[in-house]
Amino acid sequence: MQTVGRTRTHFLIRAWTAFVVLAIYLPIACGALAGLSKGRYFAFPIRIFSTEWWGKTWDSFEIHVLVQNSVLIALIVTVLSVLFAFFGALAFARYPWKGRRAFQRLLLLPIFFPQPVLGLALLLWFNALGISPTWKTAVVAHLVWIVPVVTLVIAIQVFSFDPVLEEAASDLGASRLFTLRTVTLPILWPGIWSGALFAFLLSWGNFPLSLYTAGADSTIPKWLYSKMVAGYTPMVPALGTMSTLTAAALLLGGGLVRFLLRRRAELRAREG
């Protein structure tokens, strides 16, 4: 009776897992396959397979510029938003001050603001200030939306940080800077890392804000969209697949580096 029940539970768990994996990866697989089609149009089943579009995508100057733009924007946004968010999170999660709650709420508001409207509003502002939109204005637009998100992510870590540790460090003779470097930052690293990851991904994949505020400069999502709307080529799925594979490679690489670092630390500890 019980084993039958357990077998059934196991079966259901496996079936569900398989379904989820399928639901997530089937579309990606379809995209990947579409990029490998020789035909010009998006159609299944694929008649003839070819790496032609992959090659074209890889060699395209236009795509190079796109990737450069997207990477540059995402990197700058990541660095700046982590910097702003770190101090912002410290400010509201760590120190009591008047208006702290209001600050917390105000900070959350842009997240709920529809992005196309936010993008349009920012574009109007840039025009009013006489700034012509380029990828630099897109960075500003991304920051408006991403800093609050990253602040929240880092704040979660800051909330669990015990300020007594800083007092203890000071009591043991450490300066503020030394304490920040050896106590506060190392303990908050996990939060800062996840914040950075969020910032990069949100910027990398952002379409509505870039659409309005990047002006003539294009980013990968912007280009993908424009090609979908008019002038589809299999370079669209090819580029999509490439970026997915790059992300997977980065994740695997990061995991490997962490694994190696941990092993080195363990070895050193054992020797020591």
Binding site: D162, V164, L165, E167, A168, D171, L172, G173, S175
Partner: peptide
């Protein structure tokens, strides 16, 4: 941090 005194905290405050 400039006092030659040291406090053992109630929570111990170990890093």
């Amino acid at each position: 941090n400039r006092r030659p005194t040291c406090l053992v905290f109630q929570s111990l405050a170990l890093f």
